[in-house]
Every structure is written in structure tokens, then in C-alpha cells.
Simulated scan of single mutants.
Amino acid sequence: MDALQCKLARTMLGLTVIETANLCDVSHETIRRIEAGDTTLKEKTIAKVRAAFEKAGVQFIEENGGGPGVRLKKRAKSVEEISKQIDVLEETISSIPTPTAPSPKAAMGTMRKAVAEDKMENLKARRKRISHDRSK
């Protein structure tokens, strides 16, 4: 982790220097020194700060031709969030009228309903997997 990666990670998490120091269990001066590029810091101190950032969801991108960087891990949706999406899809499906006569509008409604039902089934399967994994 270099100075810029430290500052970017802190900024991505929306933390002040003091909040970052608390998160990493180091002094705020240590965070300032890392961000200033101080090379006299112990490697274990930098590793401790990096580990705290990683635990908070930061991924460090090593030099790959475009320079080193950081990004946030994609957060997995919770069972509650998935359930809310399922509820919305159920409402959407129930609001699509059943066609009474063939027409382009009726065909589009049938298609929208089929897509929503497919998405809902996928979400239900995902919710079941997450629930099953948490019960282990």
C-alpha cells in the first residue's frame, strides 16, 4: 500500500484521519505519515493499516500498467434486500393485466410478466442459498 492508496481508501470509506486511525488502531499521526509518503514507518504498521482497510471492504489493486489503485468490494445483498426486491416484483406482476385479446400491447405485457417472474424466481433461489449458507 502506497501513500496515494491509503488516502484513496480512507476517502472511499468516507473517513477522517482520526476515524481511520481508530479503525486501524494506530495514531492519527501514523495515518498522516503514511499519506505523506513517509518511508521510515515499519512494514508491520503499514500491513496493519492495510488489513483494517481490507476488512472494511477496500480492495488494493497492484501495479498493472495503469498504476496502483483501490476499489470497494461489491457488497452482497442481504436476505432483507432481496425480499424487498421480490415484493416489488410480485406487485409488478400482479399489476400487469391478463390479456383478453391478442394484440401487440398484450404481447408486451405477457413478455414483461414473464421476465419479472423469471427474475423473481432467480431472486428467490438466491435468497434461499444465502439463508442456507448462514444456517451452517
Rank of each mutant, 00 (worst) to 15 (best):
S103N: 06
I61S: 08
A21R: 03
R50W: 00
G69H: 07
A106T: 02
K124M: 12
T40A: 10
K105N: 05
A52G: 05
P102D: 13
S78L: 05
K7H: 08
P104N: 10
L8I: 02
K105Q: 12
V88I: 13
T92D: 10
E43N: 10
K77E: 14
M1S: 13
V70T: 14
Q85I: 03
D87H: 08
L89K: 12
K44E: 15
E117A: 13
I93Q: 10
A114P: 00
K42V: 02
A101L: 10
K7N: 10
A116W: 05
A36H: 07
I31P: 00
S78A: 11
T30N: 04
I130F: 04
T39P: 01
K119N: 09
E80G: 03
H28Y: 07
P97Q: 12
N122L: 08
I31L: 06
L4T: 13
A106K: 01
V70L: 09
T100P: 00
N64F: 00
I96Y: 01
A47R: 13
L4R: 14
M120Q: 15
E63G: 00
T11E: 15
T110E: 14
A107N: 09
E81C: 02
K77T: 03
R75P: 01
N122F: 04
R50Y: 03
G37L: 08
G65H: 07
E54A: 14
L4H: 07
F53M: 13
K105H: 07
E91L: 11
P99G: 13
E62H: 05
I34M: 15
G67W: 07
L89Y: 09
Q5C: 12
A125N: 12
A56C: 07
L72R: 14
S83H: 09
V17H: 05
R126V: 07
A56N: 07
R129F: 07
E54N: 05
L4G: 03
E43G: 00
I61H: 07
V88R: 12
S103A: 08
R134H: 07
G109A: 09
A36P: 00
V79Y: 02
V58M: 11
L89H: 02
G67Q: 10
I86Q: 09
A51Y: 03
S103Y: 05
T39L: 11
E29P: 00
R50P: 00
R10E: 08
E43S: 12
D38Q: 08
E91W: 00
